[in-house]
Design a protein around this nucleic acid. Structure first.
Lengths: 206, 206
DNA sequence: CAATAAATTAACCAAAAGGTTAAACCAAAT
DNA sequence: ATTTGGTTTAACCTTTTGGTTAATTTATTG
């Protein structure tokens, strides 16, 4: 019953996601969230008790969704070639489905580095299945087998996620540098996925 | 005379850079900037007239410094191999010199996409030397010659800058995922540069 | 239908924020 | 010594903000 797509609570959430994405936690205004949701400002505090809590709910939901999706697709692939084909697609499709989420995560990461870390830590504590250990062991094993050129899991991650994530926030800068408008449509998304897959497969596989 | 390293004006600037990096424009507090600089709050408005203007000055200086450094090193290299060796080094060393700059640029990019674009646009208008045209022509030429696997300049940029920039803001997330602390010392910086150079050379050169 | 619970609103509030001001301070020039 | 100009300060002001409240409307249920 709770999940009515147009309940006041849901409308607040949707409006807040946009507000936090555009302005960050400190720039977000309760009054604007209310106006965007078409409800009275007091409703925000009625349902979420504080701006901070509303923010927490949104971040936690977002991160949880993302982690779940990544886990699902990681479980399917146990060779590096397949993994490197799947990961960019997962990240890029996830963030293109809702560009606000990329912005919110980046905001939170810069303003409050420990916050997302804690959420991830808590999520991992609950699962018996430990994706972080599995990933590290995978990288180690593949490197030993001579399949992987890059041996450090830290750099493997830093080579995969940023090229996938950054196009959703860095594009204006690229446009300015190249003096050209770039439309983020399905074609661009497909091209970006192809380019990243190519980059990390050729760049890190042997 | 103006450039005394400990003049009130300089102290305000240094304190403000840290404040804007940690909290973004909307989270930054004039009172905290004043306390950090060890001066009276009114001095901020005496020298910079408004918070917004102080912010503008900082962003413009930062972006100008970065662009200048990139231009310098781009002028030196006219084959893709050399360029792909130099660019990650420039970006990573620039941001590691002062991690605040990475955060400030990211903040501004997310909250105010047109802002940095405009600054870059203005900078390029003044120079007779047009780096954006040169870069596009380079990529086009190299791709034709069969030296480059990636033909689109947009994706070339999106494959180079994010892996270089993101480690300065995304590391807490990586730490959480891998359940491991990562020290950002000179050794790590060197390794990151090597990894990115490897990634983009193998990933995009033929 | 009556009574109770949930949802919604307008009006209000205290705290905090950016910004102003007028007076004091201080160094150099006359 | 006095004037002059730039610095610096404490006290103050205005607006905006997240958050509250008490009253009202709407839905639920016995």
């Amino acid at each position: 019953m709770e999940k009515q797509k147009n309940s006041a609570k849901q409308r607040i959430l949707r409006s807040a996601v946009k507000e936090f994405a555009d302005h960050g936690f400190w720039g977000a205004r309760a009054s604007r969230i209310a106006k965007g949701a078409g409800i009275n400002k007091a409703m925000i505090f009625y349902y979420f008790s504080s701006k901070e809590n509303l923010y927490r709910v949104i971040i936690e939901d977002t991160v949880k969704d993302l982690i779940e999706e990544v886990q699902k697709s990681m479980a399917k692939s146990d060779d590096p070639e397949k993994l490197f084909e799947i990961l960019p697609e997962v990240y890029i499709r996830f963030f293109s489905k809702n560009e606000f989420m990329a912005k919110i995560i980046i905001h939170d990461l810069v303003q409050n580095p420990d916050h997302i870390s804690n959420i991830i830590g808590q999520l991992f504590e609950k699962t018996p299945y430990k994706p972080q250990k599995i990933f590290q062991e995978m990288v180690h094993k593949w490197h030993k087998k001579g399949l992987l050129a890059e041996s450090d899991p830290v750099h493997v991650i830093l080579n995969i996620i940023p090229p996938s994530l950054f196009c959703f926030i860095g594009l204006p800068m690229v446009e300015a540098v190249l003096e050209r408008k770039i439309k983020v449509d399905d074609k661009f998304i497909d091209e970006r996925i192809k380019s990243v897959v190519n980059l990390i497969k050729r760049g890190m596989l042997k």
